[in-house]
Design a protein around this nucleic acid. Structure first.
Lengths: 224, 224
DNA sequence: TCCTAAATTTAGATGAATCTAAAAATAGTT
DNA sequence: AACTATTTTTAGATTCATCTAAATTTAGGA
């Protein structure tokens, strides 16, 4: 019988970051990019890469980078699942605003209790998306990105429903709140300004002028 | 401006243990008793005692023991508050049984977010007691033990309401479940067996014979 | 008072997670 | 093919939290 499988908080955070950087796919993730994302030093990442490799969570090639193993992917999905379910819980049950949930969910995602997260899932009636529109992996690890495009990439006159945000910073989310843009709203592109790629949109009967910065951080699902 | 006040998980656990051992009062708590309670070594406790003293959370007297400072007490109450509120949440909102909540609450009590625990408190409608009958400190740190006695200390024919448990082990709580003994039930002592101090009780119209072991782990509030 | 047993502390070690500074490997360019 | 800039790794140090083993202090007899 081999030693019980247990991950420290730091290990879980590395796994999650590698996943978000695309460790899912085949290309190797560089230690530098991980360090940058986690605001830590490349040398620390190297150490951790070795540790995670020893535990069978990543494939580590010296001077090349890492990818997640199957076990690593499963772990990452479980953490992402917990993070996003907790975010839904905070918004739906405790009236947190969608710009306040991230920090707290970063802590809650490390709570170790399968029963707890399953019960939370049930309490929330098995949500498919988190408050930012990101999909929640199922208990068995199924995970499907929603069919979506950046608002900035839609052609003139195209219509769509707002389904997610790319940037999840407080300032961006608060901008959206202030302008009454929320998931589920219908949007139509009315005009595009060639000079700065800003666009004029119709949203819920109102007209609104938004910068390219904004439009390229809003996901929509196009319809006709 | 001095360094931001921050406690590690280990530090919080020590503070909590000292509180439970009576660090509230004036007598010093020995390193040995702390080590025993936490299933660690006395030498580890000594190290931590120094660290906590440096941070102003305990008064540490070499070879004598520790007491909590005002700051330490405040910290302890905040942790106990979080632990007990989470226990209520698990039982009331997620249908955990009262013998399953401790472990998970041990993790949840370390989540750092004032807003989160205040919202949980509100969601639960500001409960005064946890699922084992222990009082929940208020946000401002008020904390009052309920007026209660051990069932084993009640005289013959005395009546009372079950208000808490002393032992919170799974096996004890499951015994109570099996015999349909729960907080809020009325109990009357009918007979006491001199030989082994076991007692015959009336509870909710039923008669039940329970050992002294059981009776000395059940709290009741006596009435007439 | 002196002695011994128990409690407590010190000293030194270990593993996790991090850092800095220096060394090594890689990749792009002439 | 050789040079250089960048990336990555190594080596060595630090802090936290823990341990074991040895030394010290305290407290309770005889």
């Amino acid at each position: 019988m081999r030693k019980a499988f247990f991950l420290t908080r730091a290990e879980e955070n590395y796994i999650k970051t590698i996943f978000h950087l695309g460790g899912n796919e085949t290309q190797l993730i560089s230690t530098n990019s991980i360090a940058e994302e986690m605001e830590t030093k490349p040398s620390s990442v190297t150490d951790m890469a070795k540790r995670l490799a020893r535990k069978g969570l990543v494939n580590y090639v010296r001077y090349q980078g890492v990818t997640l193993t199957e076990k690593g992917k499963k772990t990452a999905l479980s953490i992402v699942r917990k993070h996003r379910l907790w975010e839904v819980f905070l918004v739906k049950k405790l009236d947190f605003n969608w710009d306040e949930v991230h920090e707290v969910a970063e802590q809650l995602e490390h709570i170790k209790s399968e029963k707890l997260i399953d019960k939370i899932d049930e309490l929330l009636d098995f949500p498919k998306y988190d408050p930012h529109g990101d999909p929640i992996p199922t208990k068995s690890g199924e995970f499907q990105e929603r069919d979506k495009q950046l608002l900035s990439e839609l052609p003139i006159m195209a219509k769509g429903v707002c389904v997610g945000v790319k940037d999840t910073s407080s300032s961006f989310l608060q901008y959206l709140d202030k302008n009454n843009i929320a998931l589920g709203h219908s949007i139509q592109i009315l005009e595009r300004e060639d000079f700065d790629d800003s666009i004029e949109i119709a949203i819920d009967g109102r007209r609104l002028h938004i910068s390219n910065q904004i439009a390229s951080n809003l996901y929509v699902k196009q319809h006709d």
